[in-house]
Amino acid sequence: GKMTGIVKWFNADKGFAFITPDDGSKDVFVHFSAIQNDGYKSLDEGQKVSFTIESGAKGPAAGNVTSL
Rank of each mutant, 00 (worst) to 15 (best):
S33Y: 06
F16C: 15
G46R: 03
T4L: 05
D38L: 11
S55L: 13
F32L: 13
W9C: 15
S67I: 14
I19K: 00
S25D: 04
M3S: 05
T52H: 08
K26Y: 07
G63D: 13
F29P: 01
G63A: 14
F18M: 13
A34W: 10
T20W: 03
F18C: 15
I6C: 06
K26H: 08
P60F: 02
A34Y: 09
T66N: 15
G1N: 11
Q36I: 13
A57D: 13
F18Q: 11
G5L: 01
M3E: 02
K48T: 07
F51A: 01
D22V: 05
F29V: 11
S50A: 10
I35Y: 03
S42C: 15
F29A: 04
K48W: 13
S67T: 02
K58I: 13
E45L: 15
S33P: 05
A12R: 11
K58Q: 13
V28C: 11
G15D: 04
F32P: 02
G15R: 05
I53H: 06
D44N: 14
T4K: 03
T20R: 07
S67N: 15
Q47R: 06
V28A: 02
Y40L: 14
G39C: 14
K14G: 08
A34L: 09
G15A: 06
F51W: 10
S42M: 12
K58F: 10
V49C: 03
Y40V: 10
F51Q: 00
V65Y: 01
L68A: 15
A61M: 12
D27I: 05
L68V: 15
G24Y: 02
K41R: 10
S25F: 03
S25H: 04
G15M: 10
S50N: 06
N11A: 06
G1H: 11
M3V: 08
S50G: 04
Q36T: 11
E54L: 09
N11D: 15
H31W: 12
G59Y: 07
G15K: 06
N37E: 09
E45Q: 12
G39E: 11
N37V: 12
D44V: 13
M3T: 05
E54A: 06
A57Q: 10
A61V: 14
I6T: 13
L68M: 11
S67P: 04
G24W: 02
D38C: 14
I35Q: 03
F10I: 15
G56A: 11
A17M: 08
I6Y: 06
I53L: 10
F18T: 06
K8T: 04
P21K: 01
F18I: 14
E45F: 12
K41N: 13
E45D: 05
P60Q: 11
I19Q: 00
V7K: 00
D22H: 03
N64D: 13
F32N: 03
A61C: 15
S25C: 05
A62F: 06
T66V: 14
G63F: 02
K41E: 10
G56V: 12
S50V: 12
S55E: 13
T4D: 02
A62K: 08
A17Q: 00
V49W: 00
V7M: 02
V30H: 01
G15C: 14
G15S: 07
T4G: 04
K26R: 08
V28G: 00
D23W: 03
F51D: 01
A12S: 11
V7E: 00
I53T: 08
G59W: 07
N37M: 14
S25M: 03
D23Q: 03
G15Y: 04
A57G: 09
K41W: 14
E54T: 07
S25E: 04
G63W: 01
L43T: 02
D38Y: 08
S33I: 04
A34P: 04
F10G: 02
K48M: 07
A61D: 13
E45R: 12
L68P: 15
K41F: 14
T52V: 12
V28S: 01
H31P: 12
S42A: 13
V49F: 01
A61L: 09
K26I: 09
G46T: 02
H31C: 15
K14I: 14
T20M: 07
Y40A: 10
V28N: 00
L68W: 00
S25L: 03
G1A: 11
K26V: 09
K58P: 12
H31E: 10
V49Y: 01
G59K: 08
E54D: 10
F18E: 03
L68R: 15
F51S: 00
T66C: 15
W9G: 03
G5I: 02
N64W: 05
G1I: 13
G5C: 02
V30A: 03
A61P: 09
G56R: 07
S33T: 11
V30F: 14
H31S: 11
S50L: 08
V7C: 02
P21T: 04
N37A: 09
V7Q: 00
S25N: 05
P60S: 08
L43H: 02
N37D: 11
I19L: 03
T66L: 02
T20F: 02
V49I: 06
V28W: 04
F10H: 03
S55K: 13
V30W: 15
G5W: 01
A62W: 04
F29S: 04
M3P: 02
A17T: 01
S33M: 04
G39D: 09
N11F: 06
M3Q: 09
P21N: 02
E54Q: 07
A61N: 13
P21Y: 04
K26C: 15
N64M: 09
S42V: 12
D23I: 02
P60I: 08
G5D: 00
L68G: 15
F18N: 03
I6V: 13
K58T: 13
G1L: 13
L43I: 09
F32K: 06
F29K: 07
I19S: 00
K26F: 07
G24I: 01
P60C: 15
A57T: 13
L43R: 01
P21M: 05
N11V: 04
A62P: 10
T4I: 05
I19G: 00
G59R: 07
K48D: 02
K41Q: 11
V30D: 01
N64R: 04
V65C: 15
L68K: 15
A34E: 11
G39I: 08
A57F: 07
K2Q: 12
F29G: 02
K2D: 04
W9P: 00
Q47G: 04
K2F: 13
G56N: 08
V65P: 07
S67R: 04
G63L: 05
P60V: 10
E45T: 13
F10W: 11
S50M: 09
K8R: 12
I19Y: 00
V49P: 00
Q47M: 12
N37P: 08
A34M: 14
S33K: 05
T52D: 08
D27Q: 04
F16I: 14
D22Q: 04
S42Y: 12
D22G: 03
I53R: 06
E45I: 14
K26N: 08
F51E: 00
K8G: 02
S55Q: 13
G5A: 01
G24K: 03
T4H: 05
W9M: 04
I35D: 04
N64V: 12
D13T: 09
G59S: 08
A62T: 10
G39S: 10
E45H: 13
D27T: 05
G5T: 01
G56I: 10
P21L: 07
T66R: 04
L43D: 01
G59D: 13
W9N: 04
